[in-house]
Design a protein around this nucleic acid. Structure first.
Lengths: 413, 413
DNA sequence: TTAGTTCGTTCGGCGAGCGAATGAAAGCGG
DNA sequence: CCGCTTTCATTCGCTCGCCGAACGAACTAA
C-alpha cells in the first residue's frame, strides 16, 4: 500500500519538478516555485540535486539577454532537461523480429537495429541476442561505457496490471511470470513491459499531441484495433489490463464472426484484414494493406470500402469519446497508411456520433519505426518523469529498484 | 498544483487509516501497520488523533474474547469507525422538490424531509427553505447543537470538474459559479455539489456493491441513462465533466431523434419515456413507467418491448465494460422498477457483447429515497475517507476549508 | 549613483515518520 | 503458580524534508 513518508515525498517532488521542466522545455526556478506551490528554498534544493545528477542543465545566460526590454529585476536563469544526460532502450517485440533502439531523454532515437528471431527461441536465447544487439548499438552511439536507465519493451498482447505478468500474446514463450525480472537480472537494468498500445499512449502523452493533457485517447489501427487512455493525468489499464479493447465492441449487429467468438466486432469489420477481404470480394484482387490507399485513387469501389470501414471505426471512437470525455484523440497505427478515404470516413464517423458541445482534437499520427522507438522508450521515461501519485502502485513489470541513475551523492549546499 | 509537504502527508495517512478501518469495519492497529506499511509508532500516533477526534472507537474487550482458542500473544484491541461520531447532510435537488436528509458516518439516514419549492425560487429563498428544514431535521434527530460535517447535494445536470460550477441542469437558478461557496457561507458548513449519477457512484464505491473495488461502473436508468465510473480507485469525470454519457452513444443506427440532436441514442431508444411511447404505440394505452412491469406479466407484447429495450441497454453496457474493464457493474436508477423482463434483457445483452474471459459482477440495486440519501451524503463522506492522492485536485465544489470537524487539539502522547 | 525589483540561496525551526527499546496482555508448559 | 514466548501497543530519540525570513545577486530606471 502506498503511504506518505520516508524519502517518498522528496522523490515525488523531484519527479514533479523534473516533469514540469520537461513539459515547459525551459523554466526558471522562480516559475517552478510559483507553479508548484513549493517554496523557493525547496525548489533550490530539488533543482540542486537534479543539477548534481546532471539531469538538468542551466541555460547559458546569453540565450535570454535578447527580448529583455523593460523587464526589471534580476534575470532568471532557466533550467532545461539535458536530453543527452541519460539514455534508455526501447524494444519492439514482434512475432518474427526484435527491434532494439537507444534513445535520449527526449525519446529521440540514437540508433536502431532489427534482428530476426526464431518463433520458438527460448528466453535465454532471446536474452543473448538482446544483449549483443544492445552492446553493438551502444558502441555505435558512443555510449559504450554507460548503462541505460532502463529497458522498455512493447509487445502485442495484454499485461496484467496487478502482477506485471504477460497474460495474452501471440508469443508463447513470453507468457508467464517473472519475465521482466529475469531479463532485468540478466542484463543488469530495470525492464518494463507493456502492451504496444499502452507504450504508444505513454509516448503521445509525454511527447506527442497529448503532451501535458490530463484526458487523452489513443487509437491504434492495424491488424487489430486497440485503444489506450489517459484519465486524470494517468494511464489506466482496468482491472485485468483489458481496458480499451475497442476492437471488440460491436460495430455491426450480426456482422462477421470475430476470432474472439462474437459477431460484428469492430476489428472484424474495419481493421486491415477485413478491408483486404472486402477489396478481394469486390474487385477480385488480393492486395496488401499497403497498396490499398493507392488503388483507391483510381477505383471508387475501393474508396467506398475504405470510407465505410473508416466510418465504422469513427462511430466506435465517437462512442469512446462520449464515454471518456477526452481533450484529444490520437489515431495512429499501421492503419494510417490506408489513406485519406479511410481517415476521412473515420473523422466523419466521429463527428456524427459526438454530443453537440463535445469536440476534442482529433489528430492523425503516422506510424513507423520512430513511433515504436518513442513508445517503448517512453515506458522507462515515464518512470523518471511521472510523479508517483499519478502512477499505479502495480508497476507494469520489472525490478522494484528505483530508476534514478547515479547515486545522488551531491546535495545543493 | 499538488505537492508533497506541509501537513499534507499527515492528512493523507490519516485518511488512509480511517478509510482502511471503514473498509474492514474492525481492525487492529497492528494490522493497520502491516497493511499500510506504516510503522507501528506512526499508526499509534495517527489512530490516537482519530480517537481524540472521536472518529474511531476501541472495540470493547469482551467482543473479541470469543473464538480465541490457541492464539498466543497479547490480544489486539480492534478499532471501528463510530458511525454516530459525526453526521452529514445529503440533499436531493429535483426540479420541483428538495429532499434533505441527515445521515451518520455509515451514510445511514437518521431523518428525511421533502419540501416543494417553486421552480423560480431565488437562491436566497432556497437557502432559507433549506436552513429551516435542516434545523427541524437536526432537532428531530436529537442533534440540535451539532454542526454537520458538510452538505452534499446531488442534482441532475453536469458539474465542471475544473471549477466546480454547475454548467448544465434543468434548474436554471443553479447554473453559474460560486453556488456552493455562497450556500456554504450562508449555512456555515462546506457544501459539495455533484451530478446525481456521480453521487450514486460514490455511494456504491464506499458502501455498496463496489465497496473497496478499484474499478467500478454504475449505470443509472430512468428518464435518461447515465454512467459513473471508478477507475484505479478514484471517481473520474473527464475533461469537461461529461465522462460516462452512455445515454448518448448510438444504440440504433438511424434510430429516433434524441433531444441532443443525434439519432438513435441509447437514451432515446431504451429509457423510460421511450418505453412508454412504445407501449402506447403497440397497445394504445398510455401507462406510467411504474405500471409497465405489472402490465408486462399479462401482456407478452409489453414484455417483448421491455426485453428489447433492456437488450439495447445491455449491449451498450457491454461495450462500456469492454472499454473500461471494471470488476463490478451496478445498475440502478428508477429504471429498475421496469421489472425482470427489462433487467433480464439487459443482462442478456451484456453477456452477448462481452469478450469471452470478461465477466464482471453485474448487480441490480433498487433505487429509492435511501439510495438518494446515501449518494448525496457520500459526497461529504468521500472527502473524509478518501486519501488525497486518490482525489482530484479540483473539488467538485465548495469551500476550500478542510472538513475535519472539531479542531484536532489532542495528540496522542 | 541610488532606489526598486526580481531571482536565488542560506539558515534555523518544525512537523512527521521511523527504529529500537520498553511495557502490556495474553497462552503454554512444567 | 510462575516464568517463557508471542503478539500488541507505546515511548523516545533520530533523521529527513519543507517552510519562512533574511540576505546576497543581478539588473532597470531615474
Amino acid at each position: 500500500m502506498r503511504t506518505g513518508g520516508g524519502g517518498l515525498i522528496r522523490d515525488l517532488n523531484r519527479a514533479l519538478v523534473l516533469n514540469l521542466v520537461r513539459e515547459r522545455r525551459a523554466i526558471s526556478r522562480a516559475d517552478i516555485a510559483r507553479i508548484t506551490g513549493l517554496s523557493p528554498s525547496t525548489v533550490t534544493s530539488i533543482t540542486g540535486s537534479l543539477l548534481a545528477d546532471a539531469l538538468l542543465v542551466e541555460e547559458r545566460p546569453e540565450a535570454r539577454d535578447r527580448n529583455r526590454s523593460g523587464i526589471v529585476g534580476r534575470p532568471a536563469t532557466r533550467l532545461r532537461v539535458d536530453p543527452a544526460a541519460r539514455h534508455v532502450v526501447g524494444v519492439k517485440l514482434a512475432p518474427e523480429s526484435l527491434t532494439v533502439t537507444v534513445t535520449d531523454l527526449d525519446a529521440e532515437p540514437l540508433g536502431m537495429v532489427t534482428l530476426p528471431h526464431g518463433a520458438h527461441a527460448t528466453l535465454d536465447e532471446v536474452a543473448d541476442l538482446f544483449a549483443s544487439a544492445l552492446d553493438s548499438l551502444l558502441a555505435r552511439a558512443g555510449l559504450s561505457g554507460e548503462k541505460p536507465l532502463g529497458i522498455g519493451i512493447g509487445m502485442p498482447g495484454a499485461v496484467d496490471p496487478a502482477t506485471g505478468d504477460v497474460v495474452r500474446t501471440p508469443l508463447p514463450e513470453w507468457i508467464g511470470s517473472g519475465l521482466a525480472g529475469k531479463l532485468g537480472e540478466r542484463l543488469g537494468v530495470p525492464v518494463l513491459i507493456d502492451n504496444d498500445v499502452n507504450t504508444l499512449t505513454v509516448a503521445e502523452h509525454l511527447y506527442g499531441a497529448g503532451r501535458g493533457l490530463d484526458h487523452l485517447l489513443v487509437i491504434s489501427v492495424g491488424r487489430g484495433i486497440g485503444m489506450g487512455a489517459v484519465v486524470d493525468g494517468a494511464i489506466v489499464r482496468g482491472a485485468r489490463g483489458a481496458l480499451g479493447e475497442i476492437g471488440h465492441t460491436q460495430a455491426m449487429p450480426d456482422g462477421r464472426e470475430c476470432w474472439c467468438g462474437k459477431r460484428g466486432c469492430l476489428e472484424a469489420e474495419a481493421a486491415e484484414p477485413a478491408i483486404v477481404r472486402d477489396v478481394l470480394a469486390v474487385t477480385g484482387r488480393l492486395v496488401s494493406p499497403a497498396e490499398v490507399a493507392g488503388l483507391a485513387e483510381d477505383d471508387e469501389r475501393i474508396a467506398r470500402i475504405l470510407r465505410a470501414a473508416g466510418g465504422l471505426v469513427g462511430r466506435s471512437v465517437g462512442a469512446a469519446i462520449t464515454l471518456f470525455d477526452p481533450q484529444c484523440v490520437v489515431v495512429s497505427g499501421e492503419g494510417v497508411r490506408l489513406g485519406h478515404h479511410y481517415l476521412d470516413g473515420l473523422r466523419d464517423g466521429v463527428l456524427q456520433s459526438l454530443m453537440p458541445d463535445a469536440e476534442p482534437d482529433l489528430v492523425f499520427e503516422p506510424w513507423g519505426d520512430e513511433a515504436w522507438a518513442r513508445g517503448a522508450a517512453s515506458l522507462v521515461l515515464r518512470e523518471l518523469f511521472t510523479p508517483a501519485h499519478l502512477r499505479d502502485d502495480r508497476h507494469p513489470a520489472g525490478t522494484p529498484t528505483t530508476l534514478r541513475g547515479e547515486p545522488s551523492t551531491a546535495r545543493a549546499s
